[in-house]
């Protein structure tokens, strides 16, 4: 399976390029929209919650702290939800190709993954610029981000491929996941901080593997702290587990995949 993927590396690379360019073909700002969308979203949250509701980061002074906190968490979440939701629908999007051309099917989620990683890198670059604008200089803790990226993408890839296979057989899956993802977003400390959560429902957040992953970003970008590696063990295990499981199920299901498309 892996050797055939290697043989198709040129296809995967050119498909990632096509994916990035294709989505905003014939728009003037083009790829800039990839960055503008999440930044605008963060700006809206910051405006509403900080200016209107008066939210402030506990124990942090300065106007910039809350927007930076928001942007860090949303960058992590954006990577997760993009990989997950695109992996979920990619088999259906390419159904014609899957039915009529013989190529390694695992290329498709890989293309999605690659595209999301490039987007994410561009977003991080934009965040970097915004931070400079706030006069908030990045520290050496930025270098820990790749660890977060790897765990988040394994988790999202694993869940996404599993759901993508199920979605081929029953389209209810993608509809349901839309709702689930929204709920999941609010169970992750992105807009609020972990400390603000009442202790009696903290277990819910402790169960959420995305919580420590968003925290890596917040720690590295805002607090300039190294992550608590003990906390990372749980999401890393779930990520590897999901990633492995998705491979096993994919191997079993792939012969039936085309039959149902």
């Amino acid at each position: 399976m892996l050797s055939s993927l290697w043989r198709y590396r040129h296809f995967v690379a050119s498909a990632i390029r096509a994916e990035l360019k294709g989505r905003f073909a014939r728009s003037r700002l083009g790829a800039l929209w990839y960055i503008l969308n999440p930044l605008a979203q963060a700006a809206i949250y910051a405006l509403v919650l900080a200016e209107v509701m008066g939210a402030r980061m506990p124990r942090m002074a300065g106007v910039a702290a809350y927007p930076i906190y928001l942007m860090s968490g949303m960058a992590a979440w954006g990577l997760f939800s993009e990989i997950l939701s695109r992996c979920m629908t990619v088999f259906i999007e390419y159904s014609g190709t899957l039915k009529k051309i013989s190529f390694p099917r695992l290329c498709l989620p890989l293309i999605v993954w690659g595209g999301a990683l490039v987007n994410h890198a561009m977003l991080l670059l934009a965040i970097f610029v915004v931070f400079m604008f706030y006069g908030y200089y990045p520290s050496v803790t930025w270098f820990v981000l790749p660890i977060g990226i790897v765990i988040i993408s394994m988790l999202a890839f694993g869940i996404g491929v599993l759901l993508g296979i199920l979605n081929v057989f029953s389209r209810d899956v993608s509809q349901a996941i839309g709702v689930v993802l929204q709920l999941w977003f609010w169970v992750t400390p992105i807009v609020y901080s972990y400390e603000a959560v009442p202790p009696r429902i903290r277990w819910l957040i402790d169960l959420n593997p995305m919580a420590p992953l968003a925290r890596i970003y917040q720690d590295a970008l805002l607090f300039h702290r190294w992550p608590d590696f003990q906390l990372l063990a749980y999401p890393a295990l779930i990520g590897i587990g999901m990633f492995g499981l998705s491979f096993v199920i994919f191997r079993r299901a792939s012969s039936e995949l085309v039959d149902a498309l």
Binding site: R7, Y8, H10, F11, S14, A15, A18, K21, G22, A25, R26, G96, T97, K99, K100, I101, F103
Partner: peptide, 26 residues
Amino acid sequence: LELGLGFNPEFTGRQNVHFAAGLMGY
């Protein structure tokens, strides 16, 4: 089995050749 699978109308002929031929494993 079908002509023009995987072609993207926004791309040039040359770019589409890259994509479609890649899909065939070149």
